[in-house]
Structures are given as C-alpha cells and as structure tokens.
Amino acid sequence: MNSVDLDQAIACLKQGNVLAYPTEAVWGLGCDPAQQQAFEKILKLKQRPIEKGVILLSESIARIEPLLSILDPDIRQQVVASWQNSNDQQRATTWLLPIQPAIPTWIYGKHDRVAIRVTQHPLCQQLCAAFDGMVVSTSANPAGSTPAKTAQQVANYFSGQISILSGNLGHSPEPSRILDAVTGQLIRA
C-alpha cells in the first residue's frame, strides 16, 4: 500500500496524480480538477464515463463564493447554512450549483450544474487548504463495486496505482446527500 502524509499528498495532486483519501463516509479518489489528464486517470480507474461528472470538495465557503454569488439570496443562505451547521459527525450535503466558466467541462460532464461540497472532515479540510484549491471527490471504487470503507479496500481495488493519504473516515453512515440549488430537487437522498 502506497501510504502518504499530507505533504506527499499535495505533491501527488500537483504532479497530476490520483490520490485516495478518507471523507465523511467513504474513501474518495481525488485529483487537481484543473488537470484533465489526472481526471482521466480517475475515470479509467473507476471505469466511469465522463458524462456522469464528479463532486468538487472545498474546505471553505469563501473559496467557492463565486459559485454562490449568482444564486437567489434566500437559496444562497440555505446552501451556506447547510454547510455551516454541519459537522463531521453527520451526513454531509453536496449542492448542485450553476456552472461558472472557471469550472472545467470534464468536471460536470453532461450536466448543467457542478456538484460542490464544503467538507467538515478535518483531514479533507487540511487537504484542500494545503492544496489551496478544490479537489475532485468521487468514491474510491470501480463502477458497480461497493465504495471503499478502509485504506486496505482502496489498495485492493487499485493495487498500487494510486497514493493513499493516511487517515480515518468521518462518522457519517452514508455518502453526502445531493440537492439542486436551483430547482430544490433532492437528487440523492
């Protein structure tokens, strides 16, 4: 198993490699969202079509403010409150937000929204802050397989093809729920 610390994880992301890391509920695969070849590595590892899109993870609301600024003020407050009032002991919320030009097309696939989660998981917060940007977040498993709940499961799925950031899962029993900020529709309960 190719375990790395936070500094090595940041180097991995900057070099265009794929990183596995613990999130609120399952292990995730991530990369620098601006590096298309890194993103394509994730798709290949997961055997996932580009059309599906992925989540972008941030440690702070301030980092994603440009994505929130075009929302209706009441909706914006609902989105912000869902992140501010959460903690790593409960289920996270991912919001589908209107696409901005700064978001690469490969991130949102065939969709007209981009999925964003402001994480309360301490290690994910450290990862995004140290990287100084959002990080791709998609479950660490090949398509059709159960998402990894341990670093060993990640290693079994991807046998030495990725680096694994040492750490613990959060305490959420399920992956994030997903809501559309424009329509209010619950996409994943």
Rank of each mutant, 00 (worst) to 15 (best):
W83D: 01
A25D: 02
C124K: 00
C12K: 00
D74G: 07
T119G: 01
P101L: 09
I70T: 15
A140W: 00
N2L: 12
I50W: 05
V4M: 04
A20N: 02
M134L: 12
W106D: 02
S166E: 13
R91A: 07
K44M: 13
Q78P: 08
I99Q: 01
R177G: 13
R177K: 15
P49K: 13
P104R: 05
Q185W: 08
P33E: 09
W106V: 06
P122Q: 11
F39E: 06
N168E: 14
L71V: 10
C124Q: 03
A34M: 10
R177L: 14
L29D: 04
A140F: 06
C12S: 12
I61G: 05
A34D: 09
P101W: 07
A129Y: 01
W95F: 06
C128G: 03
R76M: 14
Q37P: 09
A38S: 12
G109D: 04
I70F: 09
C128D: 03
D74Q: 15
S139E: 03
S137V: 03
V54F: 06
R113W: 04
Q89T: 10
D180Q: 08
Q36M: 14
L71A: 12
Q89C: 10
F39W: 08
A25N: 00
L97M: 07
Y157T: 03
E24Y: 05
P98T: 04
I64R: 02
A11T: 14
A189M: 12
L97Y: 02
Q37N: 15
G160R: 07
G16E: 13
I187A: 07
S176W: 01
I75P: 04
Q89F: 11
N87F: 05
F158A: 00
Q8S: 14
T150M: 07
E59M: 08
